[in-house]
Computed example of a mutant assay.
Amino acid sequence: MMMNLFSIFDPSTNIFNLSLNWLSSLLGLMFFPMIFWFLPSRMTIFWNKIFLILHKEFKMLIGTHSFNGTTFMFISLFSFILYNNFLGLFPYIFTSTSHMTITLTLALPLWLSFMLYGWINNTKHMFAHLVPQGTPPVLMPFMVMIETISNLIRPGTLAVRLTANMIAGHLLLTLLGNTGNSLSSFFLSLLVITQLLLLMLESAVAIIQSYVFTILSTLYSSEII
Rank of each mutant, 00 (worst) to 15 (best):
I15V: 15
I15Q: 13
F16R: 11
N21L: 07
L23W: 07
S24C: 02
L26V: 12
L26M: 11
L26N: 15
L27M: 06
L29Y: 12
F31R: 08
F32L: 15
F32D: 08
F32H: 11
M34P: 00
L39I: 14
P40N: 07
S41Y: 05
I45D: 10
N48E: 11
K49S: 08
F51G: 10
L52S: 11
L52M: 10
I53K: 12
L54K: 05
H55Y: 14
K56A: 13
K56H: 08
F58A: 08
K59G: 12
L61E: 10
G63D: 11
S66R: 10
G69P: 02
T70K: 08
F72R: 08
F72W: 13
F74R: 02
S76D: 07
S76I: 12
S76T: 12
F78E: 05
L82R: 00
N84G: 13
N84S: 13
F86G: 04
G88T: 02
F90Q: 09
F90W: 13
I93D: 05
T95V: 04
T97R: 00
T97N: 06
S98N: 15
S98T: 08
H99S: 07
M100H: 03
T105H: 08
L106Y: 05
L108P: 02
M115Q: 09
N122F: 02
K124F: 01
F127S: 03
H129V: 05
V131S: 00
G134H: 06
P137Y: 04
L139I: 09
M140G: 03
